[in-house]
Design a protein around this nucleic acid. Structure first.
Lengths: 350, 350
DNA sequence: CTGAAAGCGCTTACAG
DNA sequence: CTGAAAGCGCTTACAG
């Protein structure tokens, strides 16, 4: 098959003071009888290396069990293989799904994800970007467009590719994969209106930019149906949860005794709402119709199952990661801003 | 306040071919009029550096806005600042909670978490360990003790500190933070028995090692009460979910028409069970008592709220991370194996 | 307690 | 298409 390896490859030869025993690129190069530079090129992607040499190098690397050192690579090239993903929160099932999808494609291509949790705090986000920049990441995936001017500049002046998720835009030079939160909000509202509901409460938590975009969609739909009433907006800055959904239902009833539908801005809230309605003996949808958002786990299992807007969470993660990877490989991105849209799922709660 | 900085600090001086413009340790050293080595030591933790110099160096670093290069540091020291966390799955809320806690303490001390998802697959875990080892991580946090001999050896021969979570043991040299899954399983079973239940089903998904430990606890408790019957074990290898809980309830009824209690091995299953019982018109707990495990979000919001075993998820993450950090700093760990225990939460479902 | 020298393992220009 | 030289930014021994 192949000639015996030169025996002087074994580590420990010579008396280097800090021998690590690691198999290095030079070991591979020697085994393949080429220079380290050629080996480096062959291993990275045969970028102008003769096929024959490339093959010899790869074979040598395999038999030696060579694994490149990310630190050395990062230092020499001023670029690591880690991708920073900025998400607002891990406790929201929403982001876990997106992250999981990103993580899968990123790791399967030899990159790593560095997760940075902003806690919906712009200042914290700024600090995180700054500190992660020191790691010379390969690129960024960030949630939404809402950030400080400084944060924006930190990213752009780094020259690193950056893909936005959760929302879409179409400015030149921008990369994004998402859907229209506003349209999503409007769609659910219109659905409830179409069911003959008139006193439709918009119940929301967190009040982050995307929530407020859905609120905007709600407002438009209500206004154009002549049903808008500011009293119908039940907004709570606490973080979204099933328990808070119950509370929001109570508040909705208190402020609007005539409420006949509630559009919860996230499915965990809607689930809490349905469960609490049951406790209060309120019939869903007969007395109050309920709509949710994101089609999170469990919504289809509630009694009644919850109508919702199914958002392309996993897809968004996958495509954003793929787009970033293309950018990293210098490949052309045919569609830099992808609107994945969403789907209205009508179940028994409305 | 302080003397003007020497003006020759500005980057771009000289004609280095690959000037990065980055502020380096030498810049700091020059500004503080010390050697780079001293600056390095002062910055890392004043390890034998005179207080005066240490302060001068730190001041210089601050005014220059110096941020150490992790890649260079990793290369020179053969150790990075990233901590590999091996978890089975991200879709289980369980691990997200633990991860979040780990992530918080790890990042707040200047380390990073590298999340590796094993998908409950030992082979995949082995591969992941191998590839992450190339990143020269600072240490490991791994879930449970169940892994291949190769995986075990990869970790131990790396010489890197490793803390186990989810379970506890007490072998010498071992580090773990967890609780007894077996005892947890037994405790919930005993509780149901104490309520006068006799035909208690153990309904489980995934069937991973920890699930089977809970099963073991269940068996012991049932046997010592003279109630054990293998037919009462409803085991399903699919992954845990609310939807699967509904299915397991059906199966439990089918195989055991006389069932009077179901101990679901994870709260998402229990939630699905409660919801489905309602659909079937089965009264909980009158006809069937239901118990869960882990006290996940939402269990207290169900109708009826679910009795469960509250496990110290966040605490486990926090303490494991802290222990690993102590190990990394060479500090003594007073208690290398911590049993955090668990708590029986009795609610209306039992 | 402090420093001059060497090296970690790779890649970037620059030549041929 | 291939290689010799230099360098990325830090830290490790080794001296003083």
């Amino acid at each position: 098959m192949k000639k015996a390896q030169p025996t002087d490859l074994k580590p420990g030869k010579g008396k280097r003071s800090r021998a690590t025993g690691r198999i290095t690129l030079s070991d591979v190069a020697k085994a393949a009888s080429v220079s380290p530079i050629t080996a480096s090129r062959a291993l990275r992607s045969a970028e102008s290396v003769s096929p024959e040499l490339a093959q010899r190098v790869n074979a040598a690397a395999n038999t030696l069990g060579y694994v490149p050192d990310p630190a050395a690579r990062a230092l020499a090239s001023a670029r690591s293989t880690s991708i920073v993903v900025l998400v607002p929160m891990l406790t929201n099932a929403l982001f876990v799904e997106v992250l999981e999808a990103i993580h899968e494609v990123v790791t399967s291509t030899g990159y790593q994800t560095l997760i940075a949790v902003t806690h919906y705090d712009s200042q914290q986000e700024e600090t995180l970007i700054k500190s992660y920049l020191a790691h010379r990441p390969a690129g960024f995936i960030v949630s939404g467009f809402d950030r400080t001017e400084v944060a924006r500049r930190l990213i752009s002046s780094s020259g690193l590719p950056c893909v936005h998720i959760m929302e879409v835009a179409s400015a030149p030079g921008l990369h994004s994969v998402g859907f229209s939160q506003t349209e999503g909000g409007a769609t659910m509202t219109r659905h409830l209106i179409a069911q003959g509901r008139k006193r439709i409460v918009f119940a929301a938590a967190q009040l982050d930019p995307r929530t407020m975009q859905r609120a905007e969609g709600y407002r438009r739909a209500m206004k154009s149906a002549g049903l808008y009433d500011p009293k119908l907006e039940v907004l709570n800055p606490q973080r979204s949860s099933i328990a808070l959904g119950a509370e929001l239902l109570e508040q909705s009833l208190r402020y609007n005794p005539d409420v006949d539908a509630i559009f919860f801005n996230n499915d965990d809230l809607a689930q809490g709402g349905v469960l609490h309605a049951q406790r209060l003996g309120i019939k869903v949808p007969e007395q109050i119709a309920i709509g949710g958002f994101n089609d999170l786990t469990g919504s289809d299992q509630m009694n009644p199952p919850i109508s919702t807007i199914r958002t392309p969470l996993r897809q968004m993660g996958t495509q954003a990661a793929q787009m970033l990877l293309q950018l990293l490989e210098g490949q052309p991105v045919q569609k830099p801003n992808i609107d994945l849209s969403f789907e209205l799922i009508v179940r028994k709660s409305s």
